[in-house]
């Protein structure tokens, strides 16, 4: 394999990895606070359709991304109201959010189907990315650089700030955090909203980087991969980054291997498609073996907070 091929593979794999990385980061923060939101796929679809609508109306990519983040955060807050304030079951409500997002985006997106969306290209001058090797550094959409900054930001927030410590405390032991005076519900609302905003931006990646159009169910299940990714990463931001790029590499190598033909076709198609999930299961098995059966999941994940109960 030559450099001529390795560079395009890297560029394609970065594109494939970015949405699952962004959505995974958002979900990671929500889960660290103890909230399991299975609505990632739905929030990504809402983000994608809002992005397309705003770009087609205004031509402004940044505005579109902000609107997508806002819309998906609003959808996440509906989820938050039901699960946090009304203590509804998080799993069922999250699935309902996905179904809602799928339906809402299909309805809202009808006027925008059949239209090409302008791509959100590299912010650097084209001369910088002219050389193929420098393209690996400068050739991406701003969303890619944003996703990498957010990995560091989320890690720094969770590990190095007081607010991050409170968020983790709320996720590990809500009653203790409550008893020393922190607002468990308030923290969780913020974490859920952040998760929604990130899922919305992940949705933006589809029309702005990957396939510049709107069509129903555009994200075709990437939200579920992002959920698996959080488990794969054992709720750690840098492992999430590695996992996202590993999943992206698998997805990208599949099509490049098929296109190359010959000896690269040894693996059957179905196995390629199952690889991210198989890898997640393998990692779960390894984690539980190492820690004598306990997973590294936040202790309060998925449980409603009922201080009086």
């Amino acid at each position: 394999m030559t450099l001529d091929l390795i560079i395009p593979i890297i560029i394609t794999l970065v594109g494939a990895s970015t949405p699952i990385l962004l959505a995974g980061l958002g979900e990671l923060v929500a889960e660290k606070s103890g909230v399991l939101n299975l609505g990632v796929e739905g929030m990504m679809l809402i983000g994608a359709v809002i992005t397309v609508a705003v770009v087609l109306l205004t031509g402004n990519h940044w505005l579109a991304i902000v609107c997508a983040a806002g819309a998906s955060a609003a959808a996440a807050l509906i989820f938050g109201f039901l699960t946090l304030s009304l203590s509804a079951n998080q799993v069922a409500t999250g699935l309902a959010l996905t179904i809602f997002g799928t339906g809402f985006s299909a309805l809202f997106g009808q006027p925008y189907t059949g239209k090409a969306v302008p791509l959100f290209r590299s912010p650097f001058p084209p001369e910088l990315a002219a050389d193929p090797v420098w393209r690996v550094v400068f050739g991406y959409s701003p969303l890619v650089y944003f996703s990498l900054i957010m990995v560091v930001a989320v890690w720094w927030f969770l590990q190095r700030t007081r607010a991050g410590l409170i968020l983790r405390a709320v996720g590990e032991n809500d009653l203790s955090a409550h008893s020393i005076g922190y607002s468990v519900i308030g923290v969780r609302y913020l974490a859920v909203a952040f998760g929604g905003a990130m899922a919305g931006i992940a949705g933006s990646c589809f029309p702005l980087i990957l396939t510049p159009q709107w069509v129903e169910r555009l994200t075709t299940g990437r939200g579920w991969i992002a959920l698996a990714l959080v488990v794969f990463a054992a709720w750690r931001p840098f492992r999430l980054l590695a996992g996202a790029y590993l999943f992206g590499l698998v997805m990208t190598l599949e099509v490049y291997a098929k296109a190359a033909g010959g000896g690269f076709r040894v693996l059957p198609s179905e196995l390629w498609a199952a690889l991210p999930y198989l890898a997640t299961i393998l990692v779960l098995v390894l984690i539980s073996m190492r820690r004598g059966g306990s997973s590294s999941a936040p202790a309060c994940l998925g449980k409603p907070f009922l201080p009086t109960g």
């Binding site: 395009p8 394609t12 494939a16 589809f206 990957l210 994200t219 997805m251 099509v255 296109a259």
Partner: peptide, 13 residues
């Protein structure tokens, strides 16, 4: 769509 687009990229590359 995302996978079809990636397949097209792989083929063009």
């Amino acid at each position: 769509p995302a996978k079809e687009a990636d397949a097209a990229r792989a083929l063009i590359d």
